[in-house]
């Protein structure tokens, strides 16, 4: 997994609550058997005026000029500002894959859906929970000043605004370690092979029907 340490980038405000993973990456793009290539279809139904299908050349498609990510000032944005319950719905990991492929490596919201939140960490991405009032303020600031850039420092667990304000955030210690060092979580678990086997032996005695 790619490391995540420090990130400086334009913050794009997506002002909708309950953004679901069907909206992040619609079902027709889930048919891919690869992990990459989802970026052009991120938010497909909102981003384009025509209907998208796999295999279309996105450069030939009609962009929706009203969609926030299509505004010139947000091109190259690396941080997504979002509202509550971002990533709800389907467990599809294609959602973080699409966000990452597009260029978003951090998402700031008042709350995330559990599975989506979890999936981000597996892909070198950092979802950051800040209180609703703070997120609201960042929305206003991002809207007010063009080129609004935030700096995310994972080691220090801070989001720093252009004004120099440092906003602390919480993150689970294990996940932080995995991101900072780009650790292979499967490899870490496999260090405990003996414990897993001992556990299995116990369950086999207690619940033999699970080991037919």
């Amino acid at each position: 997994m790619e490391k995540f340490t420090r990130l400086e980038g334009i913050a794009a405000p997506l002002d909708r609550a309950n953004v679901d993973t069907d909206a992040i990456i619609p079902k027709q793009f889930l048919k891919s058997i690869h992990r990459s290539g989802f970026g052009p279809n991120l938010f497909d139904a909102w981003r384009y005026l025509d209907h998208g299908e796999p295999g279309m050349d996105h450069r030939q498609r009609l962009q929706n000029p009203d969609f926030i990510l299509n505004r010139p000032r947000y091109q190259g944005a690396k941080i997504l500002l979002a509202r509550e319950n971002f990533g709800c719905g389907s467990s599809r990991e294609h959602a973080p894959w699409a966000l990452r492929d597009y260029g978003f490596l951090a998402i700031i919201a008042p709350s995330f859906a559990d599975i989506f939140y979890n999936n981000c960490f597996k892909n070198g991405m950092l979802p950051i929970v800040l209180d609703a009032a703070t997120v609201d303020r960042l929305f206003h600031e991002a809207d007010a000043c063009e080129g609004y850039t935030l700096t995310v420092d994972l080691a220090r667990q801070t989001v720093v605004t252009p004004g120099g304000e440092s906003i602390p955030f919480a993150v689970d210690a294990f996940r932080k370690d995995c991101l900072l060092n780009g650790l292979d979580v499967i490899g870490l678990t496999l260090r405990h092979v003996d414990e897993i086997k001992a556990y299995e032996a116990r369950r086999r005695r207690e619940e033999p029907w699970l080991f037919a």
Partner: peptide, 12 residues
């Protein structure tokens, strides 16, 4: 679970 965890469960 997501796909990375599908792989994790398959492997471990």
């Amino acid at each position: 679970i997501g796909t990375s965890e599908v792989e994790h469960v398959l492997a471990t």
